[in-house]
Amino acid sequence: MVTRPAPPLRYSIADDLRARIITGRLKPDERLPSEAQLAAQYRVSTPTLRNALAVLQGEGLIEKVHGKGNFVRRRLHQVTYVGGGHMAVDRNVSRSTLRVTVRMTKTRARGELASLMKVPLHSPLTEFLCVGYEGESPHSLMRVYVPRDLAPITLQAEAPCWGSVEAALAEVRPALADTSEKVHARLPTRSEAAVLRIGTTLAVLAITRVSTDITGRVAEVAHLVLPGDRTKALFTTQRMTTERPAQR
């Protein structure tokens, strides 16, 4: 008879916490005991306990809020990316719970960004870091880069929707004429996972959008990151039809 080795402790701990969440003993938005308390409860080291929490973060069951601790993740509504930087949320979501925080900083074009912008290295740019929220839970992260001379002087630090940000940009640049988008799935960087409050093992939908204006200049490059467990993408293609000449 072959004896199978016991599963690693992190999975046993994750199984127990998962069961407590699923059965309602740990409720949505409830703060878990501190990592030190949980490590003592399960009689394991803090690194082992953190590995167990990482399993649940990867499953989207808990989220870590910097400086506050680990919380049971509320069931979040679906986000649909429909192209061009536009997102639609579940009809059941109250618009009053949606908001976007915006942070504007000066930066320089480096590496791939300079290539996408089609500008020399170290050209002056303005970066807009935009994080979308449903209630207190983040659902999207977008970094928008524009040439410094096309950036608004000021921008509200918080807006009710993405449209407010787009409107502010549209006021100081020519109309956009063409947009191309590249979409792929990948694991998040540590900074992306921290902002979105997800585990580093949960795949994200990463979208790179390049927009040119009517003069042919690249007016905007945007990097959008969406959690893979609550996002779907919808693209609509309009086909051109050519009329046949009438036969005589």
Rank of each mutant, 00 (worst) to 15 (best):
Leu98Asp: 04
Glu181Leu: 00
Gly58Tyr: 11
Ile153Tyr: 15
Arg239Gln: 01
Asp90Val: 03
Ile153Arg: 15
Leu196Phe: 10
Val165Met: 11
Val72His: 08
Glu127Tyr: 00
Arg4Trp: 01
Ser45Phe: 08
Ser94Lys: 14
Val55Phe: 07
Leu202Val: 01
Tyr42Asp: 09
Leu76Lys: 13
Ile13Ala: 12
Val195Gln: 08
Leu155Ile: 04
Asn70Trp: 03
Asp229Met: 12
Arg197Phe: 06
Val55Met: 11
Lys64Tyr: 14
Pro5Gln: 08
Ala52His: 04
Pro120Ala: 11
Gln41Trp: 04
Val44Thr: 12
Asn51Arg: 15
Ala6Met: 11
Arg244Asn: 02
Glu192Ile: 06
Tyr81His: 01
Leu129Pro: 07
Leu61Met: 13
His122Gln: 12
Ile198Trp: 13
Pro120Trp: 13
Gly24Asp: 11
Ser211Asp: 07
Arg190Leu: 05
Gly58Ser: 12
Thr48Tyr: 09
Ser115Ala: 07
Arg73Pro: 06
Val172Asn: 10
Arg239Gly: 00
Arg75Asp: 15
Pro174Ser: 06
Gly67Glu: 06
Ile22Pro: 11
Pro8His: 11
Asp229Leu: 11
Ala219Trp: 05
Thr126His: 02
Ala206Leu: 04
Asn51Pro: 05
Pro47Gly: 06
Ala151Arg: 06
Gly216Asp: 03
Ala167Glu: 15
Val210Ile: 14
Lys64Val: 03
Pro47Glu: 07
Phe128Cys: 02
Leu53Tyr: 02
Leu113Lys: 04
Pro245Gly: 13
Leu17Arg: 11
Gly111Ser: 10
Ala167Gly: 15
Thr242Arg: 06
Ser180Asp: 07
His139Arg: 13
Asp16Glu: 15
Ala170Tyr: 04
Gly60Gln: 07
Gln57Trp: 09
Cys161Gly: 01
Gly132Phe: 03
Leu9Trp: 12
Arg31Cys: 03
His86Phe: 05
Leu125Tyr: 06
Thr241Cys: 01
Ala151Gly: 09
Arg209Ile: 01
Glu59Ser: 01
Val89His: 10
Gln57Asn: 09
Gln57Leu: 13
Met117Leu: 08
Thr231Gly: 05
Ser115Phe: 06
